[in-house]
Simulated scan of single mutants.
Amino acid sequence: MEILWFVVFAALLAGYFALEGFDLGVGLLLPVLGRTRENRDRMVAAMAPYVLANEVWLVAVAGTLFGVYPLLEGEVLFGLYPLVVAMLLSWVLRDAGLWFRRRLDGRRWRGFWDAMIAFGSLGLSFCWGMALFAAATGFESPAVHPLGVLLGVVVSGLFALHGWMFLAWRTPGVFGGTRSGRALLVSGMAAALPVVALLAGAMPYLLAHSAPASTLNVLSLMALPFAPVMVGAQVWVWRTFRPGKDAVRLPSFF
């Protein structure tokens, strides 16, 4: 049962990086490719239908982490306290930018919230890299470490590449490129690579810190039946908003 839940946790975290990675990547590219208001609107419109569905993966990751590895809760929350706070603030700013940018039509209003989208995306991407390094060292390194900063740069770069691939797939030719779904899949795998490498090395440690078998059995009965629903909803989103179909349909809050 410990191995099953390790696989589930690894799949959820890698899936979050592969899916939410392009949302954050588009946010990172907003100041670069969104030189005009029209282009910024197109970039946000391209990723808007996927944002909420992708964030569900982070909620599932957090629930699995604290349910399957309860002994790590203190190490994660207290050992990475500055990073956790920075990530939460970045998440709030990024989502606030997506929700509020179209509440008013003024140039300064939209410019401010577009900047919050970019800033929040950078904060989340960068902090994820530093958090991965801290986890790889058993939470014994400082929250801000030179190698952690380097990994933050790498993760941000991978997310930016994934975001550009997504735009080239979702809006062919608009931002200087056209890519197929296979290319987007490859960039998603690249975005998830740091997570896969970390978990491969941390597997013995995580298995040793798993919850008791009785707890895992209860979690299996409560959580695993909802996995097909989560996957099915994700498939529906991608089929509904794929390029060339319902291109103008957007959630009203964006």
Rank of each mutant, 00 (worst) to 15 (best):
M1C: 10
E2W: 07
V8C: 11
L13P: 00
F17C: 10
E20D: 14
L24Y: 05
V26W: 07
G27N: 02
P31I: 02
V32H: 05
R35F: 03
T36N: 02
R37M: 11
V44H: 12
A48Y: 08
P49A: 01
Y50S: 07
A53T: 11
A53W: 09
N54H: 03
W57A: 14
G63V: 10
G63L: 13
T64V: 15
L65N: 07
V68A: 13
L72D: 11
F78L: 15
V84P: 08
A86Q: 07
M87R: 03
L89P: 01
S90H: 00
L98K: 03
L104G: 10
G106R: 01
G106P: 04
W109D: 09
R110G: 15
G111D: 05
G111L: 00
G111K: 00
D114W: 02
A115I: 06
L122E: 01
G129M: 02
M130L: 14
F133H: 13
E140W: 11
E140P: 05
S141P: 01
A143W: 15
A143T: 06
A143I: 03
V144N: 12
V144Y: 15
V149M: 11
L151D: 14
V153P: 10
L158R: 00
L158G: 09
L158P: 10
A160Y: 03
G163T: 03
T171I: 06
V174D: 03
F175N: 06
A183V: 13
A190Y: 12
V195P: 11
V196K: 07
V196A: 15
A200K: 02
M203H: 08
L216G: 04
V218L: 13
L221K: 07
A223K: 00
M230K: 00
V235H: 08
V237P: 06
W238P: 02
W238F: 15
P243F: 12
D246V: 06
L250A: 02
